[in-house]
Amino acid sequence: MKPTKKILIISYYWPPAGGPGVQRWLKFVKYLPDFNIEPHVYIPENPTYPLIDEKLLSEVSDKAIIIKQPIFEPYGLASVFSKNKTKKISSGIIPNQKKQSFIEKVMLWIRGNLFIPDARVFWVKPSVKFLKQYLQEHQIDTIITTGPPHSLHLIGLQLKKELNITWMADFRDPWTTIGYHKQLKLSSWAAKKHKDLEKEVMNSYDQLLVTSPTTKTEFEAITSKPIEVITNGYDVEKVNKKPLDEKFTLAHIGSFLSARNPRILWKALKELTKENPEFKKQFQLKLIGAVSAEVLQAIKEFKLEKYVNHLGYLPHDEAIIEQRSSQILLLIEID
C-alpha cells in the first residue's frame, strides 16, 4: 500500500451546520480515506450557522482529524437589532428591494461594503497564522478551501504566498455573479474590491473545482488556469425507496429565494384548481426549507395558500424522505 497522503480542508460549514453548504465536503471527507488520503478539516470553533442539523454529526468520518479555531462574526452583533432578519440575510434570503425595511437596507449595505468578501473575513488573519505552523508541523503540502464564504479562499491565497504548497479552491457557488451579489448595495469601490479579490484568487490557485459547466464557463473568462467540474452527488446508501404521497404533491426542497418566484407557475396552478375539481381535491404544494416572504405573498395572491404544506427546515435525512415520497419535484433557476 502506498503511503497515506495528508490534505487540509478549510471549510466554514461543518456539522452541526444544516443546509446545502455542509453536504459536499462532509461526503468527500467521508470517502477520501478509501483513496488512502488522510483528511484534516479546519473549521470555526464558534460559528454562527443560520441552520442547524444535529443529526449530521453522526456522519462525520471517524478517520477525519478536526481542527477548530475561534472566529469573530459580526452577525452575532447584528442579531441584537433583528435576529430573524440577520438569520435570513446570512442564509441568502434577501427581501425584494421595494419591501426592505430600513434595518435590512443598512444591514445589506454594511454586509456588502464593509465586510469584503463576506462577514467571515475576520477569520482570515488568525487562520493563516495558526495554519502556517500546523501545516509545517504535520507535513501537509496540499490544502483545499471551499466557499462560500469566499473569505476562506483568502486564507488559501495567503498560505499559497507564504508556503510551498498546492492549493485547490472549491467554488460551490460563484463569487461576484452569485444571485444575491447585486442586492448588496455595493459602492463602486466595494464592487471593484470584490472583482479584484476574485481575480487574484482565480490567478493564484493550482487547481479550481466548480460544481457546474456553467460556472466553469464563467470563470474561464477570468483565468486561464485549470478548472475541473465535480458536480454535487448523492450518497447511495442514504437513498431508499419510499411510497409516494397519496396527495398530488409538488415539492420544492431547499431555499426558495425571491429571485426564483415562478409567478407563471402559480397562475397556471390557480387556473387548474378552478377548472379541474379532481386536481383541486388532490393537489398539495409542499415547501421544505427557507421560503422568502415574496414567494409566500405571491402564493397568497394567486389564492393557493390553502394548498400549501410548509414544513420549514428539516434535518437532511427527513428532507430525503419527503423528496422520495413527493409526486413531482420542483427545481427553479434564477432568471
Rank of each mutant, 00 (worst) to 15 (best):
Y234E: 03
L250S: 02
L57A: 08
V236Q: 10
H153F: 08
Y31F: 15
T217L: 12
E228P: 00
Y42F: 15
P174M: 01
H316R: 13
E322R: 09
E73Q: 12
D170R: 08
K225I: 08
P149A: 14
D196Q: 12
E237K: 11
A78D: 01
H310C: 01
T4F: 01
Q284M: 10
K125F: 13
G112M: 04
I116K: 09
L32S: 03
I144N: 04
I230F: 14
K300Q: 15
N36P: 03
L184N: 01
I89P: 10
K161L: 01
T211Q: 04
I230K: 05
M202Q: 10
K281S: 13
I222T: 07
A190W: 06
I165K: 06
V128S: 06
E104T: 15
T48C: 08
D173V: 09
K195P: 00
P315M: 03
K2A: 13
D53L: 02
S61R: 02
L269R: 06
K99I: 03
V121W: 03
L304F: 08
M1D: 14
E322D: 06
S101C: 09
R324Q: 15
F171R: 02
I334K: 11
F283I: 03
A78Q: 05
W189Y: 13
I116A: 05
I299Y: 02
G254R: 05
F302M: 11
K63C: 00
P3Q: 07
V308H: 10
I144T: 03
F302G: 08
L208Y: 09
F28H: 04
H153N: 06
I178D: 07
P277D: 11
P47L: 00
E228M: 10
I37H: 01
G289K: 05
F35R: 07
Q23I: 12
P117G: 07
P70M: 07
K87D: 10
W25T: 06
Q97V: 13
K55W: 00
P70R: 09
W266D: 03
H310Q: 13
P277V: 13
K30L: 07
T142Y: 02
F256K: 02
L272N: 04
K274F: 03
T146W: 03
G179R: 12
N46V: 02
L329C: 01
Q136F: 03
A298Q: 15
S292Q: 03
H150D: 08
P226A: 05
D62L: 05
L208S: 09
A251D: 09
S188R: 12
I93P: 02
E305G: 00
E59A: 09
R120D: 11
K199C: 00
S224E: 12
A169F: 09
P315E: 05
L108A: 10
K2T: 11
H40G: 01
E228I: 11
G233P: 06
F302L: 07
